[in-house]
Design a binder for these strands. Structure first.
Lengths: 197, 197
DNA sequence: TATTTTTGATTGACTGATCAATCAATAAAA
DNA sequence: TTTTATTGATTGATCAGTCAATCAAAAATA
């Protein structure tokens, strides 16, 4: 079994497993054993590659963030006008895999963790800033700067809020409903600034 | 020291201590010892009165919820028109003690816990429904039913989102800014339905 | 009133379980 | 033979939860 070049394979498997266990459990209080078991290796190997549980968790959130960023970049490439770009940003945040219960549970767990871990908080702040600045860039072309800032704050908050509310599973707002609520918010906030009518 | 009638005093002290420790730590992974220490009693006594850590935690979230409900009732008593009642609901959710970092951290921790604990989730669902139905009751008097539902969803999500974002402490949106973002959302969503201009 | 009994409050010491982390050992490539 | 991958066994720490014992107020009794 021992073949050379296993490191990247194991790292990936362990991060995937961590995400999956965290998603199932809805909490970061998961054991290394459980993660390792799901990745099909021994707990000792997980320590060997990541050094500590904390490091593995940090790598996991990093992965989550990178994925969202890549999706955003991809979606923005396909949109050209400011307004369609705004729609693209919204859609990415609510796309199916982001909206899966396990993914939401994982994000939520990391938000909670951010209260304790400076590093985790830094990552979430990066996410928040990125969302904000993505929105802002296009809003600025559609309305005055101060209005753009406000609308960006509001839209970002609404996106996060819809996301969180989804985690309760009752009072379920569908993906489409979430998208359309956010779209409508932006449209009506933009309305007073639109050139015609 | 042993005097009769200590039970309610101790229960209150322990719930307060739990809230405070959870707020500081920003997590539910706090020890009974720590809670008991802050309440000035032994860990054994905490178990004596609450039976288990889970029960103490459940009572703690209950307390948080009851407080928010009482504040809401009080605020709504002082408002009479639908529009001022909406403003009152918004203000309650962003009032200073609700917006304190420890309180936000505690709410967040309970949201995460709700992924695992059915009972915790039930309480949070109650909160979500209450916010929604409070908003809905007054919105219905200002616009058609279907619009009211949408606006209530949107406003509730925005409130929750602003709340969550506050927990990151960077990208800080002040209390006043949060209130005014929510107010503006409702106003502009209501605009097309207003009787005159 | 004085004395005894009961009961609630409280704790220190302990147990059992869980878990992160370590390490020495093994096995298979290179 | 050296290096890389891998694990079983173990350790040490942390905690929730238990329990028997203590102490003092309250209630009952004399």
């Amino acid at each position: 079994m021992p073949k050379v070049g296993m490191e990247p394979v194991r790292r990936k498997a362990l991060v995937d497993a961590a995400l999956s266990v965290i998603g199932d459990r809805g909490s970061l209080t998961v054991t290394m054993s459980e993660i390792a078991r799901r990745a099909g290796v021994s707990p000792a190997l997980a320590h060997h590659y990541f050094g500590s549980k904390d490091r593995l968790l940090i790598e996991t959130i990093r992965f989550l963030l990178r994925q969202l960023r890549d999706d955003s970049v991809k979606a923005l490439k396909r949109a050209d006008t400011p307004r369609t770009r705004l729609s693209a940003i919204i859609r990415v945040n609510f796309q199916a895999d982001q909206f899966a219960p396990e993914t939401i549970a994982a994000w939520l767990a990391f938000y909670a963790e951010a209260q304790r871990s400076e590093e985790t908080r830094r990552f979430l702040v990066i996410y928040a800033r990125r969302l904000r600045s993505n929105l802002l860039a296009d809003l600025r072309r559609l309305c005055p700067a101060d209005a753009a800032e406000r609308i960006a704050e509001g839209a970002a908050a609404m996106i996060d809020g819809l996301y969180i509310r989804q985690s309760l599973r009752s009072v379920p707002v569908s993906i489409e409903a979430s998208i359309s609520l956010t779209e409508d918010y932006i449209s009506s906030a933009l309305a007073p600034h639109s050139k015609e009518d």
